[in-house]
Measured scan of single mutants.
Amino acid sequence: LVRYRTISKIPQITLNFVDLKGDPFLASPTSDREIIAPKIKERTHNVTEKVTQVLSLGADVLPEYKLQAPRIHRWTILHYSPFKAVWDWLILLLVIYTAVFTPYSAAFLLKETEEGPPATECGYACQPLAVVDLIVDIMFIVDILINFRTTYVNANEEVVSHPGRIAVHYFKGWFLIDMVAAIPFDLLIFGSGSEELIGLLKTARLLRLVRVARKLDRYSEYGAAVLFLLMCTFALIAHWLACIWYAIGNMEQPHMDSRIGWLHNLGDQIGKPYNSSGLGGPSIKDKYVTALYFTFSSLTSVGFGNVSPNTNSEKIFSICVMLIGSLMYASIFGNVSAIIQRLYSGTARYHTQMLRVREFIRFHQIPNPLRQRLEEYFQHAWSYTNGIDMNAVLKGFPECLQADICLHLNRSLLQHCKPFRGATKGCLRALAMKFKTTHAPPGDTLVHAGDLLTALYFISRGSIEILRGDVVVAILGKNDIFGEPLNLYARPGKSNGDVRALTYCDLHKIHR
């Protein structure tokens, strides 16, 4: 019993810090008490220290592992850092350059016999395009090294910054494609005289377009951006097909006994025919423009016929181009109408809503002055909100995010209106959640004399007048207030005048 009563005193000691020596009952000389009392004092002292730490809000209350900052290894790049964003855009520009100039170089340097010394005699450094290609190869190699040090988000939505895990993730992902696209074939085969082989191998750079397509997928929600990307894709495919079309004609031209190829026909049409040795002929500019003209006309199913396939190889390629053109029509131009419709969806919704308003007016036989006010209010409210119901949009977000959005939407009023000066951010967040926005066209009466005042109004834009009878008592403008002081009276009061809008007004109100 003594032991039980001794232990039962522990909660009292913990909360009230009572010393055991003052209790005459606990001072009985028993061996059990002498053993338990020192333990009680020690526990009391420890609990006292913990309570003191909690009340003082000291940093040592938290466990040590929670006080440590997340460790980022040296030379690790955050995937959302500004440097990584700028670097990704730079790589994107280099990939676009590669997609345009690599097929052009591979096709127009394929057994090209233009006048001038061969590239091997001039030297590697004197070729501007080769120098640019070398810079692109170096940048792609540097990009691989950067990807080995860039964080990523795993399946659990955690940012991984450990170098080993980053390397394994990159090896399992895009490393092989990036490595093949970054191989400097110019340096590996330079001086061997195989410019045709170098041009063909350099087309491996186009593998990076797969990554670019995935990154550009984030802009699919913007109709104008999608339309622009589709047109660029169409032009890029036409450019690639033009390079292939020229390569076919250029390879067949020296081996044909009869002059029936499209390059021969082009030379005869523009007065620059090929001679018996295969030299001469149109310039590279004429060849490229004509090839691009043929691919565009074939892809769009126009086909004027002034550039036509004559050999079997050219006919087979033309059939493939027609098939590609039909697929592009289905996948690209078939979506253009939907994209344009999405661009004008706001206008369509406006006309639909206006039609419903006019049908309501016609069905209920609203008189002319009231009908005009109804239409003007709808037009003004639509121009202010673009038909978007803010309350319906915010309803799907958590309250903390709703408060931040409301604070942002009402920031101008909260910053410049005098009653809100000096208020804490928590108070402003709470008030912003209570605001209701209303609009009024010129001549609209917001409050009639004798109406119950259940709200306090803040003028965000425009001006109003307060009338008693036919006498203008006051004219209020931006950041002015009218209405009933909230919670100042037990019952809502009545208006002693009319409140009429002089201009288009936007008002925020808080109800009782």
Rank of each mutant, 00 (worst) to 15 (best):
E64P: 14
E64H: 09
Y65S: 08
K66V: 09
A69Y: 04
P70K: 07
I72R: 13
H73Q: 09
H73Y: 10
R74H: 07
W75N: 04
T76C: 04
I77H: 01
I77N: 01
I77F: 07
L78F: 13
L78M: 06
L78G: 04
H79V: 01
Y80D: 05
S81F: 01
P82I: 10
W89Q: 01
W89I: 07
I91H: 01
I91C: 04
I91W: 01
L93F: 09
L94E: 14
Y97G: 01
Y97T: 01
T98H: 01
A99W: 01
A99D: 01
V100Y: 01
Y104S: 01
S105P: 01
S105M: 07
A107G: 01
F108D: 01
L109C: 01
L109Y: 07
E114H: 15
E115K: 13
E115N: 03
G116M: 08
G116Q: 15
P118N: 14
T120P: 15
T120D: 01
E121Y: 12
E121F: 07
C122R: 01
G123V: 08
G123S: 05
G123F: 15
G123C: 01
Y124C: 01
Y124Q: 03
A125H: 04
A125P: 09
Q127M: 12
L129I: 03
V131R: 01
V131T: 01
V131D: 01
D133S: 12
V136I: 14
V136Y: 02
D137V: 01
I138A: 04
M139S: 07
F140N: 01
F140C: 01
I141R: 01
V142S: 01
I144F: 01
I144G: 01
L145Y: 01
I146L: 07
I146R: 01
E158F: 04
V159E: 04
V160N: 01
H162N: 04
G164S: 10
A167I: 05
A167V: 05
V168R: 14
H169I: 04
F171P: 01
K172L: 05
K172R: 13
W174M: 10
F175H: 01
L176G: 12
M179V: 11
A181E: 01
A181F: 01
P184K: 01
D186L: 09
D186S: 13
L188F: 13
L188T: 04
L188R: 14
I189S: 13
I189T: 13
G191V: 03
G191L: 03
G191K: 13
S194N: 14
E196V: 13
E196R: 14
L197M: 04
G199D: 08
K202W: 01
K202T: 01
T203C: 14
R208E: 03
L209N: 01
L209Y: 01
R211H: 01
K215M: 04
L216A: 09
D217K: 10
S220T: 04
S220F: 14
E221S: 07
Y222W: 08
A224I: 11
A224G: 12
A224D: 10
V226I: 12
F228Y: 01
L230K: 01
C232V: 05
T233C: 15
T233Y: 04
F234M: 13
A235V: 13
A235S: 14
L236Q: 01
I237F: 05
A238N: 01
H239Y: 03
H239S: 01
L241H: 01
L241S: 01
A242H: 01
A242F: 01
A242D: 01
C243N: 01
I244H: 01
Y246M: 11
I248T: 01
N250Q: 13
E252Q: 07
D257H: 06
D257L: 04
D257G: 14
R259Y: 08
R259L: 01
G261C: 01
H264P: 01
N265A: 14
L266D: 01
G267Y: 01
G267R: 01
D268I: 14
Q269I: 01
K272C: 01
Y274G: 01
N275E: 04
S276W: 01
S276M: 05
S276R: 04
G280L: 01
G280E: 01
I284L: 13
K285V: 14
D286N: 01
Y288K: 01
T290D: 01
L292T: 01
L292H: 01
Y293A: 01
F294D: 01
F294M: 03
F294H: 01
F296P: 01
S297N: 01
S297F: 01
V302A: 03
V302F: 03
V302D: 01
G303H: 03
G303M: 01
F304M: 04
F304H: 04
N306L: 01
P309I: 01
N310F: 01
T311W: 01
T311R: 01
T311P: 01
V321N: 01
V321F: 03
M322E: 01
L323I: 07
I324E: 01
I324T: 03
S326H: 01
S326D: 01
L327E: 02
M328N: 01
M328F: 09
Y329L: 15
S331L: 06
I332N: 06
F333R: 03
F333M: 05
G334T: 03
N335T: 03
V336L: 04
S337I: 03
I340Y: 08
Q341V: 07
R342L: 13
R342P: 04
L343V: 07
L343K: 06
L343P: 03
L343C: 09
S345W: 10
G346R: 07
T347D: 10
A348Y: 07
A348W: 15
Y350W: 09
Y350F: 06
H351V: 03
H351D: 03
T352K: 12
Q353S: 09
L355W: 09
R356P: 03
V357G: 01
R358S: 10
E359R: 08
E359Q: 10
F360Q: 01
I361N: 01
R362P: 02
R362C: 02
H364A: 08
H364N: 13
Q365C: 06
I366R: 02
N368V: 08
N368S: 08
P369W: 03
L370I: 03
R371G: 07
R371L: 02
R373V: 04
L374R: 01
L374E: 01
E375M: 12
Y377A: 10
F378W: 11
H380K: 10
H380T: 09
H380F: 10
A381G: 10
W382A: 04
Y384V: 04
Y384T: 06
Y384M: 05
Y384S: 10
T385I: 01
T385G: 07
N386V: 05
N386W: 04
I388V: 07
I388W: 12
I388H: 10
N391K: 05
V393K: 03
V393T: 05
L394N: 03
K395T: 14
F397M: 06
P398W: 03
C400R: 07
C400K: 03
L401H: 03
L401S: 01
Q402T: 03
D404F: 01
I405T: 04
C406V: 05
C406L: 06
N410S: 09
N410W: 01
S412I: 15
S412N: 10
S412Y: 11
S412M: 13
L413V: 10
L414G: 03
L414E: 02
L414M: 08
Q415H: 08
H416K: 08
C417G: 10
P419Q: 04
P419F: 08
P419R: 03
P419A: 09
G422N: 15
G422R: 07
T424W: 01
C427P: 05
C427E: 04
L428E: 03
R429W: 01
A430V: 07
A430C: 04
L431E: 02
L431I: 09
A432I: 08
M433I: 09
M433K: 09
T437F: 12
T437I: 08
T438F: 12
T438W: 07
H439I: 07
P442D: 01
D444E: 09
T445V: 11
L446S: 01
L446G: 02
A449Y: 13
A449P: 02
